[in-house]
Amino acid sequence: MQIPPASTPIACDMSNARDTPEERLAEYRRLFAEALVARERTEIGIRFRFRADLGVEDWVRDLAAREKACCPFFGFDIAAEAGEVRWDAAVPDTDEARAVLEDFYALT
């Protein structure tokens, strides 16, 4: 996973997004309710683990791409294997970025 440099601004800009912040949060809630198996901390960030049900990998990849477009300080890696989809997330090693990562982890 490529983690952006610490000089990357810690800001989320959804002005070009096809959804609103409220719609995005609702989508996270739907995804977590339908497919989340577990969440955990990793050496460099966090991981969400989802059941690899039909369409879940595409959903996770699409959501991660949209999140990366508005929050470029995130590094994401999506992998599917052994019946699950893993979404790893990490941020630059700054207090501000780590606080946002904690908020992301708490979405569940």
Score class of each variant (00 low, 15 high):
residue 59 W to V: 02
residue 23 E to V: 09
residue 17 A to M: 14
residue 84 E to R: 14
residue 55 G to A: 02
residue 58 D to L: 07
residue 44 I to S: 15
residue 77 D to H: 15
residue 77 D to C: 06
residue 43 E to R: 11
residue 28 Y to T: 00
residue 68 K to V: 03
residue 80 A to H: 05
residue 18 R to Q: 12
residue 33 A to R: 14
residue 48 F to L: 05
residue 77 D to S: 10
residue 36 L to S: 11
residue 58 D to G: 13
residue 67 E to I: 01
residue 46 I to Y: 03
residue 76 F to M: 08
residue 67 E to W: 06
residue 31 L to R: 11
residue 29 R to A: 15
residue 19 D to E: 15
residue 32 F to N: 15
residue 62 D to Y: 03
residue 53 D to G: 05
residue 16 N to H: 15
residue 59 W to L: 10
residue 19 D to N: 13
residue 28 Y to F: 15
residue 15 S to W: 04
residue 31 L to K: 09
residue 42 T to E: 11
residue 60 V to M: 00
residue 67 E to P: 01
residue 63 L to W: 03
residue 15 S to I: 04
residue 84 E to N: 05
residue 62 D to H: 10
residue 51 R to F: 08
residue 61 R to K: 12
residue 65 A to M: 03
residue 27 E to M: 12
residue 56 V to N: 03
residue 34 E to P: 10
residue 58 D to P: 00
residue 86 R to E: 06
residue 87 W to P: 00
residue 76 F to A: 03
residue 29 R to N: 12
residue 88 D to I: 00
residue 74 F to H: 10
residue 88 D to Q: 14
residue 52 A to F: 02
residue 59 W to G: 01
residue 46 I to Q: 08
residue 30 R to T: 09
residue 22 E to Q: 14
residue 52 A to M: 02
residue 41 R to E: 12
residue 79 A to T: 12
residue 43 E to H: 05
residue 89 A to T: 07
residue 83 G to V: 10
residue 38 A to M: 04
residue 78 I to L: 00
residue 76 F to K: 05
residue 24 R to F: 09
residue 60 V to D: 00
residue 34 E to S: 12
residue 75 G to F: 06
residue 42 T to M: 08
residue 68 K to W: 14
residue 57 E to H: 06
residue 59 W to Y: 12
residue 23 E to D: 11
residue 89 A to V: 07
residue 78 I to H: 03
residue 44 I to G: 15
residue 62 D to P: 01
residue 82 A to N: 15
residue 83 G to K: 14
residue 35 A to C: 09
residue 68 K to C: 02
residue 83 G to C: 12
residue 82 A to Q: 15
residue 60 V to E: 00
residue 87 W to G: 03
residue 82 A to M: 09
residue 52 A to G: 07
residue 86 R to W: 02
residue 24 R to M: 08
residue 81 E to Q: 13
residue 64 A to D: 02
residue 27 E to D: 14
residue 78 I to F: 03
residue 69 A to H: 00
residue 31 L to G: 12
residue 77 D to R: 15
residue 33 A to N: 14
residue 49 R to T: 08
residue 82 A to F: 07
residue 70 C to T: 10
residue 52 A to N: 08
residue 50 F to E: 05
residue 16 N to G: 12
residue 29 R to I: 01
residue 34 E to N: 15
residue 56 V to A: 02
